[in-house]
Design a protein around this nucleic acid. Structure first.
Lengths: 201, 201
DNA sequence: ATATTTATATACTAAATGGTATATTTACAT
DNA sequence: ATGTAAATATACCATTTAGTATATAAATAT
């Protein structure tokens, strides 16, 4: 009934925000309860009072990290006028995963979660899979809208294009992070730009 | 001096071969010493008699997994006559990471190691980075040779093409593994095929 | 065959793990 | 201001962690 959050709600949010970057850097297995208590300054009692277990913290942390990206992308897309520009937002946002800006510590949480959890943690894997699915659909819808508006061709292989853009971006993030060479992502994003430009009618 | 391996050498090899798929599925942090002793049927004394620590087992396991892929690719490339076919080997081998065949359990070890280790384990990260670098160079050399032979155009952006092919393949593997949908990799590999076909003179 | 090196097993750390029961403190409605 | 409920801390649990010292067994060179 209140607009103000309860103490517990605020603590829960504080735990999520504090641990989200830790999970994204160290992974689910690599992050321990003591990492969580140390980073938050809270005790186990406090953590387990707000979360069922470590996994629930990790799931909430993923949602938080994913939410940050989703929000940034949605806002940026809204600012673009052409569909070509809207599509390029994905490349530009993921561009900022590297180098100075680094607006999410540890890189893309979808990639990190997908690769760690695919064979080991069904709930986390499910969240990453949903994020991918929603991203795929968003790209396909943008291309469809662009085609309907006349900006894009009408015979585009929607799914292949969407999945290829995602694969390029995530693969590029992986490449640049593992080689510590930001230019590797730049190169791959050039290909993304070319693919998007080729959609034009 | 012997052609036959010593008992320790054989045990070491046995440990590597037995644990390599475990590390590739569960990751470095997710794999415990008891996973290793249980899978091998050996005791800790035996493991630590042949390896300095868990990390050294993981590093050897990565080399082993990587060696399997490298060997398969090298042999297949040797069988191809055209450079276009040679380049397509990468896509075809990684195609078999999914579905029935699954010749390496857990997917691509380069991707798995890169994503887990990039921010946390320098030695493992280094091995993954070297693998990427060698892969990039191999693709660039194939394109160069294809251009020299007249099969490919001469104005190809070598590095961008090589990195984009790698990003597509690794991103595609991630997509299909996280969604449990093998068709997602197929779609992305179609784009790889298109890129390679566009290299032709 | 035996001495000696090499490899493996046993039994053990100390520390860290995720998790819990209970005590204490804090927030908040009355 | 106070009683009560909610939130947090304390102290603990059993288990598992990576790793080690030492004993035993097996391989190998002589």
């Amino acid at each position: 009934m209140d607009k103000k959050l309860s103490k517990a709600q605020r603590t829960r949010q504080f735990i999520i925000e504090t641990t989200a970057p830790i999970f994204n850097v160290k992974g689910y297995e690599g992050t321990s309860m003591s990492d969580i208590t140390e980073a938050t300054g809270l005790t186990k009692g406090s953590i387990y009072g707000n979360f069922e277990n470590k996994e629930e913290v990790a799931l909430a942390a993923f949602d938080h990290n994913y939410g940050i990206i989703k929000k940034a992308i949605t806002e940026e897309i809204a600012r673009c006028r052409s569909y070509q520009e809207k599509l390029m937002v994905y490349a530009n946002v993921y561009h900022s995963f590297n180098g100075h800006s680094e607006f999410i510590k540890g890189g893309c949480p979808i990639l990190n979660t997908a690769v760690e959890a695919d064979d080991t943690n069904p709930p986390l894997r499910g969240k990453a899979a949903s994020a991918i699915q929603s991203w795929r659909n968003a790209i396909m819808n943008l291309i469809k809208a662009g085609a309907a508006s006349g900006e894009f061709k009408s015979d585009i292989d929607l799914e292949r294009t969407a999945l290829s853009v995602i694969a390029l971006i995530e693969g590029g993030v992986m490449l640049s992070k593992v080689t510590h060479n930001h230019a590797n992502l730049d190169q791959v994003l050039k290909t993304v730009a070319i693919i998007i430009n080729e959609l034009k009618a």
